[in-house]
Simulated scan of single mutants.
Amino acid sequence: MRSTTTHSAASRALGILLGFVADRVLGDPRRFHPVAGFGQTAARLERQLYADSRAAGAVHTTILVGTTTVLGLVVERMTRNHPILHTAATAAATWTVLGARSLEREAEAMAALLEDKDIPAARDRLSHLCARDATDLEADELARATVESIAENTSDACVAPLIWGGVLGIPGLLGYRVANTLDAMVGYRSPKYQNFGWAAARLDDLLNLVPARVCAVLTGLAAGRPREATAVWRRDAVKHPSPNAGPVEASFAGALDLTLGGTNDYGSYQEDRGTLGDGPAPTVADVRRTAALARRVGVAAAAVAAITAITKGKRWG
């Protein structure tokens, strides 16, 4: 039993690292992305189940997250006694759920547009990163939106899935990605989703409680400014309406010596994100700085996930 558990832990750790490397090298598949396919399935189920109620949203979330997590559990159990297959399956799942390289590409695209002063194109491109209404945003506000989106998505698209992969393996990877994708689809405070998206939003909050704080710690360490990042996190994170985006964005603000936050317009509603940090507001030059920091955070998170997998295997072996 100890040998089987140890082999499973080692293959899980190796699979996570290989999947992370695949994401860094390849990014998301250009066509037939499994997450995009899930989004289409979720949208079809939403059309059948939608009602302006929390109960309908809870059923929608339970079916989608539960089914995917069980599928991941089946794959995990079928392969865990076969190290090569288990490594390959874990690597494939990790590559599928990570979005770090694609996030970096979007940041690079936004940086290039802003540096070229192509504001109309940058406004259009911002929709690839977040749901803000960019109609009236100028260069520095577009830069702020990009920096904040990179920070938040570094946790959601990179650190959190890696942490859950390290703890639970394939079901953790797939279950987290499905829950986070649902939150991105229906977890808004808009009139349509205020009730229907409640369950997805609350589940995403719960699943990100620990990973977001791991991301916040890694951000300070990766920037070489752990004290500054932690100080801003402790002081300012509570100003943010999100219990998880607050620590992450505050840590990025401290790590980059910037001031983030403010009132964001999402078209049908506005949200005050508080004021995070002590430095100047972001400018165009800060977009590439933020992307570089996010890349270092991702490498650190992959290492933490692999160590978690090994440590957990030894404890249960």
Score class of each variant (00 low, 15 high):
A157T: 06
N208L: 04
G169M: 08
V214N: 12
L256R: 08
R189K: 15
N195D: 15
E148R: 08
A229V: 02
T146E: 07
L207A: 06
L218A: 05
L221Q: 14
R234F: 12
E249A: 04
A145W: 03
S190K: 04
P211H: 12
L162E: 00
V147C: 15
D204M: 11
G172E: 09
G254Q: 00
G165K: 10
R144A: 15
L142H: 02
T230S: 14
L258Y: 04
V210Q: 01
P226S: 09
V159W: 12
D205V: 08
A184Q: 06
S149E: 11
L207H: 03
M185R: 11
T154C: 14
V217S: 14
G166W: 03
S242Q: 11
V178P: 01
P243F: 05
D183V: 07
A223P: 15
T219S: 14
V167T: 08
Q194C: 03
D156I: 10
E152Q: 07
P241H: 13
H240N: 11
D205T: 08
D204I: 06
P241I: 13
R189V: 00
C215Q: 05
P243E: 05
E148C: 12
D205S: 10
A212F: 09
R177L: 14
R234H: 12
V214K: 11
V214D: 10
E148F: 10
A229L: 00
A143Y: 09
A237W: 12
G197M: 06
D183T: 02
Q194K: 07
A151I: 09
N153L: 08
L174M: 12
A184D: 14
L203S: 02
E148D: 15
D183R: 10
G172Q: 05
R177A: 12
R213E: 09
A255H: 06
P247C: 15
V238D: 11
R234E: 12
V232C: 14
V186C: 03
G187W: 03
V210H: 00
K192N: 03
A223D: 11
K192D: 01
T181F: 02
L142M: 03
S251I: 11
A253F: 06
S242T: 10
L206E: 02
G175F: 02
L162Y: 00
C215L: 07
E141H: 10
A179M: 10
A143G: 11
A216N: 00
R213C: 07
R225S: 10
I150K: 06
R213D: 06
L209C: 06
A199K: 01
D204E: 15
L256S: 03
N153Y: 07
N153F: 03
A151F: 08
L206W: 14
D156W: 05
T154R: 06
N195G: 05
P161D: 01
E152R: 03
K192T: 14
K239V: 01
A151M: 09
G166R: 04
C158Y: 04
A216K: 00
A157M: 07
M185Y: 04
T146C: 15
P247R: 11
V232W: 04
I170P: 04
G175W: 01
L256V: 13
P161G: 01
S149V: 12
A231P: 01
V167C: 08
N208D: 14
D236M: 10
